[in-house]
Design a protein around this nucleic acid. Structure first.
Length: 288
DNA sequence: GGACCTGACCGTCCTAAAGG
DNA sequence: CCTTTAGGACGGTCAGGTCC
């Protein structure tokens, strides 16, 4: 498991994404796509870089620059710009944050092609921010899922399988990226399934990881969220009608993939244990 | 040795926001 | 309104290294 030092970035759990990373990134790098509405040049530069990382996966800064050789700028100056956007910049005694500082990008190994060079890719926070802000098409989202399958194995790693069963509902990740349904969940009673209880437990389970979480745990938290929210009716994109997933569709996912079943129901069992332990303490009063 | 690549610097200019 | 200043763009240097 790579340490924060190796990744060159520190990030926290989903709550931290909502309370810190997302607002910070929106302030520094934009809260809407530059393709929709032009804003500061810096936002455009950052977002174009995130797009490159989203559609190509892990790259060196040189590799990022080489993705668009046709542009007027030389590779060299383009590469330096990417480096600066990643590292931030020290000027007049003040540091301005780059993508690594905010935790949207992490280091991921080294390219040994020539001299050892750091490689970079989106962090899970970066993936969420990209989904939230870059206005990715479904096709772009599919590409990102393929490139980042190993980072989010239980969702991106199952992307094709999931699409076959639940279709466009896979794009519900946008809801999470937008900061919804993570805490103060107003979803009690909308379904017989204990979604509210599972979501609450999901926050409890990772509550000590606000400052820092390792990538595997965060991937789990996001993935547990994903499968649990599938049971909440949602309004996706511009669709006027609320869609909801039939329970038998949801069950089919776990029936067809034993790995997913073991993993998800491990979480469910944890939640059950958590609640029964707590209720036991109040039950004891009966015997007084 | 020379072409090319990488990482870490620095300096200067421009622009927009802040503040009088 | 003008001045100050922070953030950003961009050109450049330097010290490494690889590969031919």
């Amino acid at each position: 498991m790579p340490s924060p030092a190796e990744q060159g970035a520190i990030y926290g759990n989903l709550h931290s994404y909502k309370m810190f990373t997302r607002p910070t990134a929106q302030r520094l790098f934009g809260s809407y796509s530059f393709r929709k509405k032009s804003g500061p040049k810096h936002h455009e530069n950052i977002q174009k870089m995130l797009e490159i990382l989203a559609s190509n996966g892990t790259l060196t800064t040189w590799g990022m620059a080489k993705t668009h050789l046709a542009d007027s700028k030389s590779i060299r100056s383009q590469e330096k710009e990417y480096r600066r956007l990643l590292m931030g910049r020290m000027a007049r005694g003040k540091h301005t944050s780059g993508l690594l500082d905010v935790g949207l990008v992490v280091k991921d190994g080294k390219s040994m092609l020539k001299v050892p060079a750091d490689q970079y890719r989106l962090s899970l926070h970066g993936i969420l921010y990209s989904i939230d802000v870059l206005d990715l098409s479904n096709k772009q989202a599919d590409t990102m899922a393929a490139k980042y399958a190993h980072v989010l194995p239980m969702v991106f790693g199952k992307w094709g399988f999931l699409k076959k069963i639940i279709g466009d509902e896979v794009y519900r990740l946008k809801i999470l990226a937008g900061g919804l349904f993570m805490d103060n969940i107003q979803i009690a009673n909308i379904t017989n399934f204990p979604v509210y209880e599972l979501m609450t437990y999901l926050n409890v389970k990772y509550q000590n990881n606000f400052e820092q979480i390792n990538e595997e745990d965060l991937a789990d938290q996001i993935s547990f969220w994903f499968y649990t929210t599938l049971l909440v009716p949602s309004r996706l994109g511009s669709a006027k009608k609320q869609t909801s997933l039939a329970l038998n569709q949801w069950k089919k996912i776990f029936k067809d993939d034993p790995e997913l079943k073991t993993w998800y129901y491990g979480f469910v069992d944890d939640a059950i244990a958590f609640y029964s332990k707590r209720f036991k303490t109040i039950k004891k009063l009966d015997s007084l």
